[in-house]
Amino acid sequence: MDTFALVVTIGVALFFTYTNGFHDSANAIATSVSTRALTPRAALLMAAVMNFAGAFLGSGVAKTVSEGLIETPHGSHGMWILFAALTGAITWNLITWYFGLPSSSSHALFGGMVGAALAASSTVYWSGVLEKVVIPMFVSPVVGLCVGYLVMCAILWFFRRATPRRAQRGFRIAQTVSAAGMALGHGLQDAQKTMGIVVMALVIADVEDEGDAIPWWVKVACALMLSLGTYAGGWRIMRTLGRRIIDLQPPQGFAAETTAAGIMYTASFMFHAPISTTHVITSAIMGVGATKRVKAVRWGVAKNIVAGWFITMPAAAAVAAAVYWVVHLAFE
């Protein structure tokens, strides 16, 4: 049973990574596609390759996810907690993808972990949840909004005398680089989150010891599934990010992508903090758009997106708790 539980849990973790890829592919390329800096298929291929590469840039985020959030006892009991957590996250990913809502796959995963642990009467390290999840969830969008606004203001000032047509052409080319940087940061962040879950499963099954380096096959498997999911594309969410919040032009798209990528690299390398790429790019787009005029941002759409952010964790937690109870009745 323990081996069966391990195989199933790792399989579900890899499927979660796949849904994460197509759910969040819009984060990296929506602005580039909407400004026609890249064709949709070229953008998806570039994002898939950069997502794969980004997964190998570090392991700090993976360790943050695998340690200090919940207690997972060894054996099938702990494995079903992870299974339920992943199922809750996948369910929320599919629901928000269907409605074109750019919610956070990361926080769906964290909510699932907390919900499953509570249902199993396992320990939740609330200080860790607060420090590693809740605080970054509030801080990163605020930083994205403010930095996006400032970066766009700087661009407007530096290029105030530039010929509009030439500037648009130049920023369209520059967006290829900024979109690649955004995709690389997405791989750095989101592939590692699943690596952390797989490592937890291996530790629970006594296959790996806590504190060991992440096995190479875990890195490759997570990177590959995220990359394949990204290439599948999340067109519903792409329309929301690329056009429904604000009508983006190449300079605005470049500013938003550069802002979001910079925040993700800072969070990953300096703080090992698992932040949401969705929160960062969405808030950066809002900040960039506000430089036109405040009313240029469709705040009604933005309000619905932000509301979805707050619902994500409890919704995924509720699904995960229900799944754990079902599994517990079936197998324990």
Rank of each mutant, 00 (worst) to 15 (best):
D2I: 12
F4K: 09
F4N: 06
A5H: 13
A5K: 11
L6F: 03
V7T: 12
V8H: 06
G11M: 02
G11F: 10
A13N: 12
F16T: 03
H23P: 01
H23A: 00
D24Q: 03
D24Y: 07
S25N: 06
A28V: 03
I29S: 01
I29K: 03
S32P: 07
V33K: 05
V33T: 10
R41I: 09
A43E: 11
M46W: 10
M46N: 10
M50R: 03
N51S: 13
F52N: 06
L57N: 00
G60V: 03
T64P: 11
I70V: 15
E71M: 11
S76Q: 10
H77V: 10
W80K: 02
W80F: 15
A84V: 11
T91R: 09
W92D: 03
N93Y: 05
I95T: 09
T96R: 09
G100N: 09
A108F: 02
M113E: 07
M113W: 07
V114R: 02
G115I: 13
L118C: 02
A119P: 15
A120Y: 11
S122L: 07
V124L: 05
V129A: 07
V129E: 00
E131L: 15
I135T: 10
M137S: 15
M137I: 11
F138A: 14
V139K: 05
V142R: 10
I155R: 07
I155E: 04
R165I: 10
R165G: 13
Q168P: 03
Q168E: 15
R169S: 13
R169T: 12
R169C: 09
R172W: 01
Q175N: 04
V177D: 08
G185M: 00
H186M: 13
L188N: 15
Q189C: 04
D190I: 05
D190Q: 05
Q192H: 05
G196S: 05
G196F: 07
L202H: 01
I204W: 07
I214Y: 05
I214M: 06
I214H: 00
W217A: 11
W217K: 05
V218R: 01
V220E: 00
V220W: 02
V220S: 06
A221M: 14
S227R: 03
T230Y: 00
G233I: 09
L241R: 04
L241G: 02
G242W: 07
I245F: 08
I246R: 04
D247L: 15
L248A: 05
P250G: 12
P251K: 06
A255D: 06
E257K: 01
A261L: 01
I263E: 04
Y265S: 05
F269A: 04
H272V: 05
A273L: 09
T278S: 15
H279R: 08
H279Y: 03
T282Y: 07
A284G: 02
I285Q: 13
V288R: 05
K292C: 12
K292W: 08
K295N: 12
V297D: 08
R298I: 04
G300T: 14
K303D: 06
K303C: 15
A307R: 12
F310Q: 11
M313K: 09
A316Y: 05
V319H: 04
A322P: 08
V323W: 00
Y324H: 14
W325S: 14
V327A: 12
V327N: 01
E332Y: 12
